[in-house]
């Protein structure tokens, strides 16, 4: 197994506030890495640094073998990203969004129509090809955003709370899509607040106040904290947090 994400003492400060406090971890190829933490624990900030959207204050990070600070454009070629906030173009049609991102990642223009149809039939949205994205329900939008994020077969995909506000059935389908992506060799880095989803991950890290307080497989974490489920593990760790829950 090869390492696709590695951080060494990665830190981000906003003025006097340390959002991410010297975190070090590594993620192996093909893993589903669950990145857990209470609101304000620093998950999104850490993920944005790994995606090259935010520059670290100190420490190092490597994604797909590239330095996140110095080679952020190379990092961007090799990753997919789905942000907390839905960020496809609402005033473009479904197929137009797919075409735009396929074009941006350099998919051959002649292959785009076929790729569009394949992607849409896989997520069951073939009938919505010509719909305006703003007309879709949230769950469908999230599925679309995910398939756009992995359209160019990235080595790693970063998902920031992809299932927030989505119904249980769609969440289930979403996780099936995630598993399918890992079968194709895509490493998944995901944040979530649903502890049942944490159980689906290969390994889970739990962030408290900008630091990683626990990192292991869900099974080992349950044993370590002698807890029934991940929910209990999470609550034990998160209770220690001193930061305001915002």
């Amino acid at each position: 197994m090869s390492i696709v994400i590695e951080t060494q003492e990665l830190t981000k400060k906003f003025g006097a506030f340390t959002a991410v406090d010297h975190i070090s971890f590594s993620v192996e190829k093909g893993e589903i890495f669950g990145f857990l933490g209470a609101n304000g624990a620093g998950k999104t900030t850490a993920m944005r640094m790994l995606c090259g959207l935010s520059k670290p204050t100190s420490g190092k990070g490597f994604v797909a073998g590239y330095n996140i600070e110095k080679e952020s454009e190379m990092v961007k070629k090799n990753i997919g990203y789905m942000s907390q906030k839905f960020s496809l173009y609402e005033d473009l049609k479904v197929w137009e969004n797919i075409r735009l991102y396929a074009g941006i990642y350099g998919v051959d223009g002649k292959l785009i129509p076929r790729k569009t149809d394949e992607t849409l039939s896989k997520i069951g949205l073939s009938g919505e090809k010509n719909s305006m994205v703003k007309e879709l329900p949230l769950g469908w939008k999230q599925k679309l955003a995910f398939s756009v994020a992995i359209l160019h077969e990235p080595r790693i995909v970063f998902l920031d709370e992809p299932t927030g506000g989505v119904d249980p059935i769609t969440r289930r389908q979403f996780w099936e899509m995630i598993y399918e992506a890992t079968e194709r060799g895509i490493t998944v880095f995901v944040t979530t607040h649903y502890m049942d989803e944490a159980e689906y991950c290969s390994r889970v890290s739990i962030m408290v106040d900008g630091r990683i307080d626990a990192l292991d497989t869900p099974h080992n974490l349950r044993t370590q904290f002698s807890a029934q489920n991940m929910d209990e593990v999470f609550r034990r760790l998160a209770r220690k947090a001193k930061r305001m829950d915002t």
Binding site: E73, K77, S83, K85, S87, E90, I104
Partner: peptide, 14 residues
């Protein structure tokens, strides 16, 4: 403001 620029910023668009 909408946040769509972030999705573009995470792509290799120069």
């Amino acid at each position: 403001e909408i946040g769509t620029i972030e999705q573009i910023n995470v792509t290799p668009v120069g």
